[in-house]
Write a protein that binds this DNA or RNA. Structure first.
Lengths: 250, 250
DNA sequence: GCAGAACCTGACCAAAGCGTCAACTTTTTC
DNA sequence: GAAAAAGTTGACGCTTTGGTCAGGTTCTGC
């Protein structure tokens, strides 16, 4: 249950809203209070429901059903619908930092960037529902995004923008507006999760498989790396254009 | 009022749902029935409300308020909330075809692609609300996307994918998986409208101006063109990297 | 100038859904 | 083992809101 990790205090400064009990010290699941297990079940169910129906469309009754608890019990753990929603949103942000960590100034730009693309896409494949929830939230103007979250994301972006600029100064990549590059990356990598229906429609498939995400990561990396004038590492695992042509034509 | 053009039968095969009267022959606004004006006002208001609140969050009362009509009058023109919603969605698709038309196999790839990016971004800037409505619809799994719409979009994508392939065969661009390229383009160009909050947050501005969209278009074009191995036209209006560096650093 | 079509609208209904509550059981603590 | 804390739950209150309806007025064609 992915939510456990979240509850257990990954990026504690962003989890103020969490109602995780302070007396829980170990991660041993068997020692958890019933409440902790239930909270996690509720959040897991809520992620699905919010992703599918949006904030207003989500009904607490459905969240309760999916977590196999009576509705009143859900309200025992979370004061309001909004609390559940915000808890999930705040937790999500921290996860993206893991992908951003790939963009380390000390690394080779080629590896760092394609690593970022791969990790980000992989995360969005594994956590499609959260991704969509967040997308939905942002599309609606970010009503429930706290100042802290916004600041955190802004700072993270600015920090990594400096990494791009340092690479440029070192002659390792072309001069590219770093923020707009971020937007391109974010938009492209979120697409597969957030706009899955369109990706499926475009690719003409019923389901997006791991392979589709991998292909996407490759194509994005291929275009962005070359597009930014980043040289591939000699021993790099990235496929060369010639290999890809076969695939594209088939 | 943008909706007029829509009502007047742009891409008629996609406007089955429209209740536009067949007796209207001219586009002269003054000759329109009261009903046509009201329908347009309702749709315009609905676009805003749906974009802001999503399907479930949108209240007919608010749509009525914004169009300055009593709620019962809204129901005089549209049988249900869903009818209003679907009408807008179906109309939107046709508009994107205009951007796709830029990708003409006979044109120079550099001009065609950067033209597409520019037109698409410009459209999303001018029709932010529709874009968001559609994004919202897709994020929720495309519940209300008809088979016709899906087929239309799939066909349009496939057709333009062939354009990319023809360019590749002619040696005008690298071999790139055309569908994934489309996804990258779509994701990047929709971002500014759909995820405006994040774009603003990243750029550190209160409002996205025309200039931000233009910068975005430039950066995307810069990266994608070079990334796909497309040579710029000599007389092209695109800025060269050196010019952009100044901007990026400032 | 009239018949019928198009349009308008206040009042209402029924269903849905968020959140409450009070009485109850189980678990923990000491 | 008893008191306190944590957890459970059916029933219900109350607001919101999609949609209806009946009884109007205004417009249009002839």
């Amino acid at each position: 249950m992915a939510v456990f990790r979240l509850i257990m205090g990954f990026r504690p400064e962003l989890t103020k809203l969490m109602t995780a009990p302070s007396h829980v010290k170990s991660e041993d699941a068997s020692s958890l209070r019933v409440g902790d297990r239930n909270r996690a079940r509720i959040l897991d169910a809520a992620i699905e429901v919010f992703a599918l129906r949006g904030y207003d469309g989500a009904r607490i009754a459905e969240i309760a059903e999916r977590s196999q608890l009576p509705k009143a019990n859900v309200y025992y753990y979370f004061r309001t619908k909004r609390t559940i929603y915000q808890t999930i949103i705040e937790n999500l942000i921290g996860e993206w930092d893991a992908a951003l960590a790939q963009l380390d100034a000390a690394r080779n730009p080629s590896e760092a960037l394609s690593g970022y693309i791969r990790v980000k896409l992989e995360f969005s494949r594994k956590h499609t529902a959260q991704s969509r929830m967040f997308a939905n939230e942002v599309v609606h103007g970010g009503r429930f995004l706290s100042r802290a979250v916004r600041r955190h994301m802004h700072a993270a972006t600015a920090e990594k923008a400096k990494v791009f600029e340092s690479w440029t100064k070192a002659g390792l990549m072309d001069p590219v507006d770093p923020i707009h590059l971020f937007i391109l990356l974010w938009g492209a990598t979120q697409f597969y999760a957030d706009f899955g229906v369109m990706a499926k429609n475009g690719l003409g498939v019923k389901r997006l498989t791991r392979a589709h995400f991998a292909d996407g990561a490759e194509t994005i990396a291929q275009i962005v790396l070359k597009g930014c004038g980043i040289r591939l590492l000699a021993g790099s695992s990235e496929q060369r254009p010639a290999d890809r042509l076969v695939k594209a034509v088939c």
